[in-house]
């Protein structure tokens, strides 16, 4: 990979100050490092934020689960508190990548990268997450903008993600047999205030499927989903899955998620 200047920031302020249009923050590095190795990305400065203590940790209350940005997938997967309060989230974390990715990859890195096939963005949408940055709080629905695109500014750092604990929830995915990313992943969450059906892998960016949510609002059962028509337009199409297949799998995995709730 091309050379850069490595910095390790001791606090958020320093990290933000070091940032520029040609820098990247480094948490787990699970995407940043391979991208640089393959020559898909290069930066002048790499700013490590893993040593900033306040960015890591898990806090669970009766209403919310708040996870620090540099908290690793393995910590979410193994957290007794999360397993109890929000088991679907722990199980999502347990299904990300492989053990070595989970030992190093972070929740903040995952959502900042916003890979269209990543798992965590669907949790943010389904669980009405609020993304806390060093400047502001952003609702998940405003956070994810498009393929690999979020509303984060270059100097902005995610500090924590606050999830709302729903009444029921489940995340189910069809993994890509090669990369093991989601071909389609569906996160169904039933909150007191409403239902979210967050879909990842299917389109350029995670989205909340209002039709599925609407059907479930009337009747929270997998048979309610049968009646919903999912259009394949706008769905991703690649060597692993056509748009038509993806559209059908959204339904199939939404049903699986409802059944598992």
């Amino acid at each position: 990979m091309k050379t850069f200047n490595y910095h390790s920031a001791k606090d958020v302020k320093e990290a933000s100050k070091l940032a520029s249009s040609s820098s990247a923050f480094l948490a787990g590095g699970m995407t940043t490092i391979p991208s640089m190795k393959l020559g898909l990305a290069s930066y002048k400065d790499i700013i490590n934020i893993k040593n900033i203590k306040k960015l890591s940790g898990i806090k669970v209350t009766s209403k919310n689960v708040t996870i620090g940005a540099t908290t690793k997938h393995v910590e979410v997967a193994n957290s007794k508190e999360i397993k109890k309060a929000l088991p679907s989230l722990a199980s999502l974390a347990e299904g990300i990548g492989d053990p070595q990715v989970r030992n190093r990859g972070t929740i903040g890195g995952s959502i900042a990268n916003n890979d269209p096939a990543a798992d965590y963005p669907s949790a943010c949408i389904a669980l009405n997450a609020i993304i806390h940055t060093n400047n502001r709080k952003i609702d998940a629905e405003n956070f994810f903008r498009g393929m690999f695109e979020t509303c984060l500014k270059k100097t902005e750092i995610i500090e924590a993600i606050e999830f709302e604990i729903p009444q029921k929830s489940s995340y189910q995915k069809l993994p890509n047999p090669a990369s093991r990313y989601a071909v389609v992943g569906v996160y169904v969450a039933k909150h007191k205030t409403g239902i979210n059906v967050a879909v990842t892998g299917a389109k350029a960016c995670v989205y909340n499927d209002k039709d599925l949510a609407g059907a479930l609002k009337k009747d929270f059962s997998s048979s309610a989903i049968d009646k919903v028509k999912i259009l394949s337009s706008g769905m991703n199409s690649d060597i692993h899955a056509s748009a038509d297949y993806r559209a059908n799998m959204v339904k199939v995995f939404a049903k699986k998620a409802v059944d598992a709730c």
Partner: peptide, 8 residues
């Protein structure tokens, strides 16, 4: 365990 090719 981590993948040493993906750590600086």
């Amino acid at each position: 365990s981590i993948k040493s090719c993906t750590a600086l």
